[in-house]
């Protein structure tokens, strides 16, 4: 039984199976909200309310012809989607869903897992860059460089913003941070600026409008994904969906007090809180226009980074006054 439990974690919950189902659901939710905000319908006909549309897209892409450019680095080109999927799926194991107790640590919850999780979330960016760079297409190359340029903009503010609640809680373990805020919900208000900053940064990390610069279709066609097709593209899309789930799970853990309450209630809380964050991200996507890559970097360093540092200072001061 003890050996079975990790396997269950990896394959069923919160591992691959759950992630696939919930990731596609989140994509559906995002698309539907985005469409409704624009007074459109969104997916309607695949499954009830179009719920199966992302799944149908995935299946269709899996069945499509897979083309590898002649000049591309074939090994890298093929490996990247799989590695990317593995990375984000691994990251999900660290998000403290109901199975983690705040006291006992295990293979998926240990001191410092917030840092590991943040690093695992940085990896997809590098994978996108390599994907663009390895496909040798001009548009992909431009997209790849844009990915890296943006990374230098948003990564530091994101780290600072996510670390400030951890600092206040005095722990580097996600489960403990969540437990700390469950005990003192009012302290969550202190972190509201950091929450806003990290929402913007996560939006940039997920490459959604206004930060969808690396695959801005009107400028550089498909950007990093121009040359990807078939199964590889399907994997990349699934990877983006799962990254959306993981990042919103991380934000919900750190800023919204985690998911207490055992199996049932904790699960419901997980769904509600992540959907709330995805709703905010969708709203941001609908309300803005894409900006230029130079504007991203200057925006991040002129506004986001100072704000994140200010938040950190606030937390340190508060911690000094707190008993």
């Amino acid at each position: 039984m003890a050996a079975l439990k990790p396997l269950l974690y990896v394959f069923v919950y919160p591992g691959l199976l759950f992630l696939f189902a919930y990731g596609t659901f989140c994509e559906w939710f995002d698309r539907k909200v985005y469409a409704r905000l624009q007074n459109r319908m969104g997916p309607t006909h695949t499954g009830r309310w179009g719920l199966l549309q992302p799944v149908a897209d995935f299946v269709k892409l899996m069945a499509k012809e897979d083309v590898v450019p002649e000049k591309a680095d074939k090994g890298l080109f093929t490996a990247l989607p799989v590695v990317g999927l593995a990375v984000v799926a691994t990251a999900m194991l660290l998000v403290p869903v109901w199975h983690v107790s705040p006291t006992a640590s295990g293979f998926n919850s240990f001191s410092g897992d917030i840092i590991v999780l943040l690093y695992l979330l940085s990896l997809p960016t590098l994978i996108f860059f390599l994907a663009g760079w390895s496909s040798t297409n001009l548009f992909s190359t431009v997209g790849g460089t844009r990915v890296l340029t943006m990374l230098f903009g948003y990564e530091v503010p994101l780290f600072l913003a996510v670390l400030s609640p951890a600092l206040l809680a005095g722990s580097w373990r996600l489960a403990e941070i969540a437990a700390f805020y469950q005990a003192r919900p009012l302290l969550l208000l202190v972190n509201l600026p950091a929450f806003a900053i990290s929402l913007v940064c996560v939006q940039a990390k997920l490459e959604r409008t206004p930060f969808d610069i690396p695959h801005a279709e009107t400028e550089i066609v498909g950007g990093t994904f121009t040359e990807f097709s078939g199964k590889k593209l399907a994997f990349f899309r699934l990877m983006t969906d799962i990254e959306l789930v993981v990042s919103s799970g991380l934000l919900a853990t750190v800023f919204l007090g985690g998911f207490p309450g055992g199996v049932g209630w904790g699960f419901v809380q997980f769904i509600l809180k992540t959907l709330f964050i995805i709703f905010l991200l969708s709203l941001m996507r609908a309300a803005t226009s894409r900006i230029r890559v130079d504007q991203v970097v200057s925006f991040a360093w002129r506004f986001l980074a100072p704000a994140a540092v200010g938040q950190l200072l606030l937390v340190i001061l508060l911690k000094g006054f707190m008993p």
């Binding site: 909200v33 469409a35 409704r36 905000l37 624009q38 007074n39 459109r40 319908m41 309607t44 709203l283 609908a286 309300a287 803005t288």
Partner: peptide
């Protein structure tokens, strides 16, 4: 900032302008 948001939220639960062709 967010000049469009009120207009967007106003339409969230409105009937869509498109028709299920």
């Amino acid at each position: 900032i967010g000049a469009f948001i009120p207009e967007l939220l106003r339409h969230l639960f409105k009937k869509p302008a498109t028709v299920d062709y």
